[in-house]
Design a protein around this nucleic acid. Structure first.
Length: 618
RNA sequence: GGGGACGUAGCUCAGUUGGUUAGAGCGCUGCCCUGUCACGGCAGAGGUCGCGGGUUCGAGCCCCGUCGUCCCCGCCA
């Protein structure tokens, strides 16, 4: 087969464009052969580009040459078809295609390139396994679904840029090759050739640079920034990812919230979802833990209810419940009536899921079989009903699954240092059961209306976290986060670290953390105080962050900011289950790029230039 | 580092209690077909059952190990 040269031929329309009003026009379409239907002397080619598909007709009587080319054309060949657009006759139109009322009758067909038989067809709805998709990523990306995902991604990014620029932000790039700060996630390192034994690090975030840009007077900075973290992957975690990173001088928290809500509205609008003007809900960290058992509550479900007040000391003794610890209940709506065996199986599953951690499930319906416990059952139902009513205006009914978790007498030792443990554990069960019954309650379905997207600000995170292993206090956020001013004035910074609240906040969507930010420390004395409180000596602080402490001394304005994961936003908007669906060339769970086959070993020559030696290969 | 699921034709998958020559659909190749659009018809090719070892008269199936992909825990200030 001989391929044709393009010559001076130009594409006049895209494959998604042709419509019946253009019938009679001469046009040239170029694209990939999506499907070929050969009827002997009549051949149909579906020609595809990223805008859509148009049917090309090759009639031997009209053009034997073009027809002959179509006979050898195969799926994924790249062709150019020139001819006249024709309105299809009655009964020949295809109502399932946007271009289905017309077809291009070709008098010339150029075979611009051939293609090997692909391992899977980009035309098929059914998807090959992910290993094959990632190896042949260029074919996978041809699929309409992936083309749509990246169209959304591009539109979202541009909408955010436009919005932030309209609000007076400057986009400024910060370095990829920077300094390793051995705190937090592991760094990806880049060896220096010029300085043997010295390494750059790829940024985990532009954190320190953007704060220094505030010192530099840039006032409002943003960047759609690539970040790198050498940690194990998850469906929603890739080693390199993109953040919408911003920082503002002279802000209140509300200033930052308004900017973020503004650009998220713009981003969602760009993806066809109008969010409405009301501000996002807000909740403190303590409320989130107590009501949802997690710092990123999924508001698409009712909250947990603290039933402790209903359980008197007497009832606790009867039911073998710890006298002091909280009793928590929650409802999974619209699960449907469970049969006796199904209920028993679920109970067994939940109990075995707790292992030996001292929790048990109270079967509320069985309480009613004992007259002396009926009032308790009714009280519990009433409390759960009240939460259901707050949630969606309905009452708790028999269609809903009521779960009440009780701590057994005797406190497991792990609770001694984490009083929130029981809340977190029950909150985890709430999500687990909600996922299990997602098909029944349908609260996780996306209809692309604003109601499907439950945004939330979580505020007042604790400043410090007790590290049981090292018996010391760690920074819960990062050490540049400012505590509440009154917690500095009260002396809690020194006397009561566990009570110090940070001016830190997360923006949460449907149980996913979209972004995290804080008001920063702008005074050197406070910054030094925080470093000391973390057990870092002044010398050590100077060694690690000296350049930053220096910068703080030259007139640093109050400032704060936030960073949101662009990939996660697009993932949710695309209805995708994994970041790999919205990152063009992602890594596998073992951080491998299957298409280019990275990482690889390098030559001894390269290692010598970098003064490196590999001591162990496993 | 730990737990779980999966791995059979290019792709998606079936394969009974361990028993003759490992199957299906799609795709692919050839031939036929002027109104299909998941075109149709006829014929055909295509397999190291992920890899290595073991048990057995006999292994796709059982056992051990190993590799790969996915999900989760740890980790991700």
């Amino acid at each position: 087969m001989t391929l044709d040269f393009l010559g001076t031929l130009q594409r006049t329309h895209t494959c998604g464009e042709p419509r019946s009003p253009q019938a009679g026009q001469a046009m040239t379409l170029m694209g990939w052969v999506n499907r070929r239907r050969d009827h002997g002397n009549l051949i149909f080619l579906d020609l595809r580009d990223r805008t859509g598909i148009t049917q090309i007709v090759l009639d031997k009587e009209i053009s034997p040459e073009a027809h002959a080319k179509a006979e050898v054309a195969r799926p994924e060949y790249v062709v150019a078809a020139t001819g006249v657009l024709r309105r299809r006759d009655e009964g020949l139109a295809n109502p399932n295609m946007p271009t289905g009322e017309v077809e291009l009758v070709a008098h010339t067909l150029l075979l611009l390139n051939d293609a090997r038989t692909p391992p899977f067809s980009p035309a098929e709805e059914a998807i090959a396994n992910e290993e094959v998709r990632l190896k042949y990523r260029y074919l996978d990306l041809r699929r309409a679904e992936m083309q749509q995902n990246f169209a959304i991604r591009s539109r979202v990014a541009i909408a955010i840029r436009n919005y932030l620029v309209s609000q007076g932000f400057l986009e400024i790039e910060t370095p990829f090759m920077t300094r390793s700060t051995p705190e937090g996630a592991r760094d990806y390192l880049v060896p220096s050739r010029v300085h043997p034994g010295h390494f750059y690090a790829l940024p985990q975030s532009p954190q320190i640079f953007k704060q220094i840009l505030m010192v530099s007077g840039f006032d409002r900075y943003f960047q759609i920034a690539r970040c790198f973290r050498d940690e194990d992957l998850r469906a929603d975690r890739q080693p390199e990812f993109t953040q919408i990173d911003l920082e503002i001088s002279f802000p209140q928290m509300a200033t930052i919230f308004a900017v973020v809500e503004g650009f998220l509205r713009a981003a969602f609008s760009a993806a066809g979802v109008e969010l409405g003007a009301e501000p996002f809900l807000r909740m403190t960290y303590d409320q989130a833990i107590q009501r949802y058992g997690i710092d990123k509550p999924d508001m698409r479900l009712p909250a947990m209810v603290d039933l402790s007040a209903e359980l008197t000391a007497e009832l606790r003794t009867t039911l073998k419940i710890d006298p002091a610890l909280p009793v928590l209940g929650f409802t999974i709506p619209s699960v449907g009536e469970l049969s006796g065996t199904a209920r028993k199986a679920l109970l067994g599953e939940i109990r075995s899921g707790f292992g030996d951690c001292g929790l048990d499930m109270l079967d509320v319906s069985r309480l009613r079989t004992n007259p002396s416990l009926t009032p308790l059952a009714e009280a519990i139902e009433a409390r759960l009903s009240a939460e259901m009513h707050r949630f969606n205006g309905s009452a708790h009914g028999t269609e809903d699954l009521a779960v009440v978790i009780t701590p057994k007498p005797g406190t497991p030792t792990m609770w001694n240092y984490d009083p929130q443990w029981i809340y977190k554990r029950v909150g985890g069960l709430r999500l687990e059961l909600a996922r299990k019954f997602a098909d029944r309650h349908k609260l996780f379905q996306q209809t692309r209306s604003a109601a499907d997207f439950k945004f939330l600000w979580v505020t007042d995170f604790p400043m410090y976290e007790w590290n049981e292993e090292t018996k010391s206090w760690d920074a819960a956020h990062h050490p540049f986060t400012s505590p509440h001013e009154e917690d500095i004035q009260s002396g809690a910074l020194v006397n009561d670290k566990g009570a110090v609240r940070a001016l830190a906040y997360d923006v949460v969507l449907n149980g996913t953390e979209l972004g995290s930010g804080s008001i920063r420390i702008h005074r050197k004395d406070v910054q030094q105080e925080i470093f000391r409180s973390l057990g870092m000596s002044d010398e050590e602080a100077k060694e690690r962050f000296g350049f930053f402490l220096d910068a703080l001394e030259y007139g640093t304005p109050p400032h704060g900011g936030i960073a949101l994961g662009l990939d996660r936003i697009v993932m949710i908007l695309a209805g995708a289950a994994s970041l790999r669906e919205v990152i063009a060339f992602p890594k596998t769970a073992k951080a491998i790029d299957l298409m280019v086959d990275a990482p690889t070993t390098v030559s001894d020559q390269q290692l010598r230039e970098l003064s490196l030696r590999v001591t162990a290969r496993s």
